[in-house]
């Protein structure tokens, strides 16, 4: 029988106040095992206080071929950034 453990992605919160960050992946037969493995593999040196695991196949990723239409239109919307607006230097706390 050829029965390979699926791949899981591991997200770890390093400490409270921070977001979960992608740490890497691993293989596990089920979610419980994925959590346990993630704990043993990715937090050996106290790197985390919380773990998320998600089976890799459940992640929908954008296609880099579409990067142009997805991300470039935002580039010229400079009015979304504070530096777009001219204010005299005397105005403080803004």
């Amino acid at each position: 029988m050829k029965n390979n453990w699926p791949l899981w992605e591991v997200f770890v919160r390093s400490k409270n106040g921070l977001e979960h960050r992608h740490f890497g992946s691993l293989h596990a037969a089920d979610a419980e095992m994925a959590l346990e493995n993630a704990r043993d593999v990715y937090t050996r040196r106290s790197e985390g206080v919380s773990i998320w695991v998600v089976e890799s196949k459940n992640i929908t990723a954008s296609n880099p071929d579409n990067n142009g239409e997805l991300f470039e239109p935002a580039q010229d919307k400079i009015y979304r950034h504070p530096t777009f607006y001219d204010l005299p230097d005397e105005v403080k706390h803004m």
């Binding site: 029965n3 390979n4 453990w5 037969a29 089920d30």
Partner: peptide, 16 residues
């Protein structure tokens, strides 16, 4: 280790 890996998969399937 094959029987162990197989067992874990079979168990996961049953739980699912």
């Amino acid at each position: 280790g094959e029987w162990v890996r197989d067992a874990a998969m079979a168990y996961a399937k049953k739980q699912e």
